[in-house]
Write a protein that binds this DNA or RNA. Structure first.
Lengths: 220, 220
DNA sequence: GTCTATAAATGGATAGAC
DNA sequence: GTCTATCCATTTATAGAC
């Protein structure tokens, strides 16, 4: 028996993901939960506050996934981070797909977002540095390391929704985890030492067996 | 003296880019143009139709930029394609940033979009093949060539809006063309033959001198 | 082609009872 | 904490005059 606040967040997330933030009204959310609009507004002062609360979940998720890397960084761990990142993007896909509009009309949210994204890019840059130091990755100019980290960030952030929008379905049914990791990891693999690249590839195959989406070897 | 239809499209684009599609109503657009709502509706049956017409401009732009590549592909030409692509994304940024919501509520638009994006990815894949054939780029597995093309597509599509959202400004004043090309080109450069990579880099520097945004050598 | 006026519908949010 | 009823503002879109 989750608290009402959490039920509202879960229901909102479900509707936002399936119908889009704009199409979903506070009354729809209340309806969906078999609850009155008045009650919903007792728990959240506005739709904006619901979205902010969902962002706080994302924030906590992301910082949990990106804990301090082990030294040395292992292919297995690295693959897991990518996989977990994609999974969070998938579960909160309404947010990642609509961030520009959402941040554009809520400066409080925009500010929190800037904090999180800077943190993620810094973390990714640091992880890349560690990979270089441990000899798993070729050295890169400082500017290019930052660009590379930002590219990884952008691909993971957008891969899911873009795949959904550009194939037959605007809304995918499931996250194709393996393909997503291969996409994002492809930014890094050309810089990897060959043995490390092969190990990462093997770790991805192992980690994505049995996950939703096409599995290794299946026809496309 | 552009026709009224074109004036409406220009004005809508300006407002969509600066305030976001959701915040801009048909009445705002009419106001902005010193025109009556009735007149606007005489020219476009709905807001949806305005957005569709703007997409047609994007479609024409994109197909114009991605004309058949010269053989061999030159660094200069390649840099220009990236630069022009980013420029179109910048000019119609409301669309690129909001595509998931937009496509989600207009199946006609979604269908047109899928056609264009498939076309762009195919074109990019073919260009990569040409680079490999002419010896400017290392060979890649077939799946990875497609993934690489899709990554380039995703980065160019999103780099502008993400840069805007994740720095101090949700709305950038200008396109930082040089940084955008360096970001997107960084997906390809590790696969380039060293001489070609250096030539591309030089072509980017030359092409972006005098463009808006930080210029080569300026402090960040 | 363009305007004024307004209909019709929707959505966010609150008051007050239980 | 939750519900019913409802207000108010906004937005899309049309009718009909010029």
């Amino acid at each position: 028996m989750a608290g009402t606040k959490e039920r509202i967040l879960d229901g909102s997330l479900e509707l936002f993901n399936s119908k889009g933030v704009t199409a979903v009204t506070t009354n729809h959310i209340a309806d969906h939960l078999g609850m009155s609009p008045g009650n919903l507004y007792y728990h959240f002062r506005s739709k904006e506050h619901i979205i902010r609360a969902l962002f706080e979940r994302i924030d906590a998720d992301a910082r949990g996934i990106m804990s301090p890397p082990p030294e040395p960084i292992t292919p297995r761990w690295w693959a897991e981070v990518f996989l977990n990142g994609l999974d969070t993007v998938w579960r909160y896909r309404f947010f990642f797909a609509g961030i520009v509009e959402l941040a554009g009309r809520d400066e409080t949210l925009a500010s929190r977002l800037r904090g999180l994204s800077a943190w993620i890019v810094d973390w990714t840059t640091a992880a890349i540095d560690t990979l270089v130091e441990q000899g798993s990755m070729a050295a890169l100019a400082r500017d290019d390391r930052r660009r590379l980290a930002e590219n990884v960030f952008i691909i993971i952030w957008n891969w899911t929704s873009f795949t959904a929008a550009f194939r037959g379905d605007v809304r995918l049914e499931e996250l194709d985890a393996r393909e997503g990791v291969l996409h994002s990891m492809l930014l890094l693999t050309p810089h990897f030492e060959p043995g490390f690249a092969a190990a990462v590839r093997a770790a991805i195959d192992q980690a994505t067996v049995g996950r939703p989406g096409p599995v290794p070897g299946s026809p496309r």
